[in-house]
Design a binder for these strands. Structure first.
Lengths: 138, 138
DNA sequence: CTCACTGCAAACCTTTTGCAATAGA
DNA sequence: TCTATTGCAAAAGGTTTGCAGTGAG
């Protein structure tokens, strides 16, 4: 009851059960900080506990998304990809050749976005900014 | 041979056949300027020519995308949505309550994007900027 | 002891594809 | 005529769901 990670205690606070499967999935999302899709998360999860089904991975990801623990992204048109949510806000640059994801943030752009939305009569709920680029020759 | 719209002659220039189905789909995309998905385009197409299949709509959209005639968007996580490409570049603000799409453009943001990419060692191939917002009380 | 959660398999939704028939050029 | 394009139906890929069984609290 006492050796809970911040993520685990957040689940409990939300009134959700802390199952073995959820523990494993949480650990996968917090240990690496890449952007795996559900299948990849399932693959990693099964290594640690072969009883975890893909359906549970999807259900858990949905729950974690709803409690604000993970962010869901849809880069390009492939499957959704996930990352833990708690860190600083950032956007993504995706290498079109390799699929690599580089994170960045620009307070100036954020500010311009709010400005534009306000001019159009809107308040921003969330946004999506993705740059798709190719590595420059050095 | 002479009464072709700019879009139709562009197809011919690309060495593609100008079929009745493609004419209808082109007309749907140029007449309205909303952002319909493939099913909606098919629905509108069948009103004009019941022989058009959904498969053809998808194939045509792919061809039109490749020739730079339409842009494909993936707002939120639903089906892809399409619009004609030829107009000025712009980004989208999506009303989270109604699904309405407002277009805007910001040269300043574009410039900042290029700047950021360059700093990270990348050249931008394309980008996606979507604001999801809620109408302000007036 | 309860009912939230799980695994399994089937269903779903969007999009793509193989194949034989059709129709632009 | 020649082959790009089409319709149909089946398949593919990602994600969700119904149901009966399991396990966290």
């Amino acid at each position: 009851m006492s050796d809970l990670t911040p993520y685990e205690s957040r689940l409990k606070r939300a009134g959700l059960r802390l199952t073995a499967q959820r523990r494993v999935i949480l650990r996968i999302l917090t240990e690496h900080d890449d952007h795996p899709d559900a299948t990849e998360i399932h693959r990693r999860a099964v290594e640690r506990d072969p009883r975890i089904s893909l359906a549970t991975v999807y259900r858990t990801l949905k729950v974690l998304e709803e409690t604000g623990t993970v962010d869901r992204h849809a880069f390009g048109d492939g499957p959704a990809r996930f990352e833990q949510a708690d860190r600083d806000h950032h956007d993504h640059l995706i290498d079109v050749d390799t699929g690599a994801v580089v994170e960045f943030s620009s307070p100036r752009i954020e500010e311009l976005q709010r400005e534009i939305a306000r001019e159009l009569g809107y308040e921003i709920v969330h946004h999506r900014l993705e740059l798709y680029g190719r590595k420059l020759k050095a």
